[in-house]
Design a protein around this nucleic acid. Structure first.
Lengths: 108, 108
DNA sequence: TAATTATATAAGCATATTATTATATGTTAA
DNA sequence: TTAACATATAATAATATGCTTATATAATTA
């Protein structure tokens, strides 16, 4: 493939990773699937805020989404080789883990 | 180490990688050392522009610098594990390679 | 069907980012 | 010491980013 689109894609991927909110989301997604409504609580940002971040993560190929009833479930896309490479290097937050466990979130 | 400073450092590293100019610099630094004046020509940005990017790359631990006379020589810091992991995944630009070879740059 | 809940999109604002120009610092050599 | 060249820092302007609120779309359930 030509150079320009490839380097631009790399830049975009790193831009997506270069944001605290999005990194926190990726870390939280390890080992579980989450919905937008689960994340609003943990991250303390608005629903549209989370929704926009998920769209960005999805567009970059870092997360898969599937609709399940009225929810959309997001999971890590471990087939993404960059993500597979980097995920093990990301620090986990006990704080965020606690919050996600405690949260009654959106009802099941 | 505590979580916050670690995740913040990761975010900063990815931010540094999430810029086309800086990625081009890292790719060009593979296998050679370069000075600011070498890069201004290839990148077509001003000397202070390059200087600022190099400072950012250095602060993030991606490049080493050493003074040699009136110049400062930059090299990749392959001891940086994130960089070591990612460098092989970056596409090279024949265009940029040509330019760096051709360039009379700053005299030796 | 109408009401409720989840998510997406649009517009707007505050802040961050990347370049520029102007100027200062540091090194070499006449 | 002075002139010439390389690099660094400061101030600034244009653009990008990440959130917000308001509103639209989609699925569920009374």
């Amino acid at each position: 493939m030509a150079y320009e689109p490839r380097i631009d894609a790399m830049v975009e991927r790193f831009k997506v990773l270069g944001d605290k909110t999005r990194l926190r989301i990726l870390v939280l997604l390890q080992g579980r699937e989450l919905r937008v409504c689960d994340l609003t609580e943990v991250l303390s940002i608005s629903q549209p805020g989370v929704s926009q971040q998920m769209r960005r993560l999805h567009k970059a190929g870092f997360v898969n989404e599937r609709r399940g009833g009225q929810w959309i479930y997001y999971t890590l896309n471990m087939e993404n080789s960059l993500l597979a490479l980097l995920i093990p290097t990301l620090p986990k937050s006990e704080e965020d883990e606690k919050k996600i466990m405690m949260s009654k979130g959106c009802p099941t």
